[in-house]
Design a protein around this nucleic acid. Structure first.
Lengths: 195, 195
DNA sequence: CATTTGAATATTGTAACATTAATCAAATAT
DNA sequence: ATATTTGATTAATGTTACAATATTCAAATG
């Protein structure tokens, strides 16, 4: 009986070989903990979000839900507003529910600057971004271009993506093969506080 | 040499003895998971809170639509968006909480028409109205004028209120003694859905 | 000089273990 | 008879150990 050896005799003691420290999923030391089964899903979701977005700390603020089913007057008549008593449709409205479809694929960005002013997105507004949606031409998207984040309308030009600002002061951004370009998500809504 | 026995000879085989299942901290099965060290604190805080506050409520708050503990990138740099890793401040954001101060004095109106377009309030937007606030000149308000509801900027002219549209196409509305006029509330915010 | 290869080492999920905590009924005390 | 003490019993919990996987490097090969 023969002992089959490796045909090749490569490798050997190599200084500095091996996987590098910090090359893991989280880039840092991990610990083992025991958690109740019903919390597993939430915790994994949390870890996933923080990993993807490269966030140091997410404070799991577990305040009481502020959900207050409030009243919505929905106006049906184009010119002016009808008497609420006669013509409005009353509805309960939860703003989270109204504006967010997939909560675990959604995050918010606060707008700085006026480049989307013609799309009624102003400095200080908060836009709602859905990472899970497939962006189409015409959508307002969050993208990174050469390392900078920007919110623009997605367009196409000569088979390449093109980002259009909604303000005449700014020029479209053309994306070529030398441009780092990544779509982060589709802007699905916006909120503004006046007071 | 003596073997020291127990002085007492109590106990023994007892059917049904022992700690009862489900008597633990969480009252349910637990699992072991590995998490990054930097997240440990938050996860423990979360587990602690959910335990104290009754699992159902909290997991509902995290999972269901009413409360979305999502991630907010708040940008500090005016021009464009910086790398999220560098400059963002991350927060949980509850849109209800963000936009509503006094929930029992607040209601919503869905906008029809383009008369406030220059204030970035467009057809289809939903505005948030606080009935409890004292309206000041410059505020966007909901008012009824001769039985019709309208949303305009509150102004003053010759000691009388005047309602200014935010669109050149429309004219200011002067309020005189023969005009029925009532202030319904101050517009404190607006939300828009793109998709 | 580019490619292939396997040793080397970190990561990661899970099992195993030791310790702690809770429960029960027999033994003891009152 | 009733209350209390006690230790066997078993679940829960935190930690370590381990096996499987992933990643990296440079020697060997082409």
């Amino acid at each position: 009986m023969k002992i089959v050896k490796n045909k090749n005799n490569r490798g050997g003691v190599r200084l500095g070989a091996g996987r590098k420290s910090g090359s893991g999923l989280y880039g840092e030391e991990t610990k083992v903990i025991r958690v109740p089964r019903s919390s597993l899903g939430n915790i994994k979701k949390y870890l996933n979000l923080s990993r993807i977005n490269n966030i140091d700390e997410i404070s799991l603020a577990l305040k009481e839900t502020t959900y207050n089913p409030l009243v919505l007057f929905e106006h049906k008549v184009p010119a002016g507003f009808p008497s609420p008593a006669d013509d409005h449709v009353e509805k309960r409205l939860d703003l989270n529910e109204y504006l967010i479809k997939k909560s675990d694929a959604t995050f918010f960005v606060k707008i700085k600057g006026d480049s989307m002013i013609d799309a009624s997105i102003n400095d200080g507004d908060i836009v709602i971004i859905d990472r899970s949606m497939q962006a189409k031409v015409g959508d307002i998207v969050l993208a990174s271009v050469d390392g900078n984040f920007t919110i623009k309308t997605l367009s196409k030009y000569k088979l390449k993506p093109r980002l259009l600002p909604a303000n005449e002061k700014y020029k479209p951004i053309e994306i070529d093969d030398n441009t780092q370009f990544e779509l982060w998500g589709v802007v699905t809504g916006a909120v503004r506080k006046f007071k």
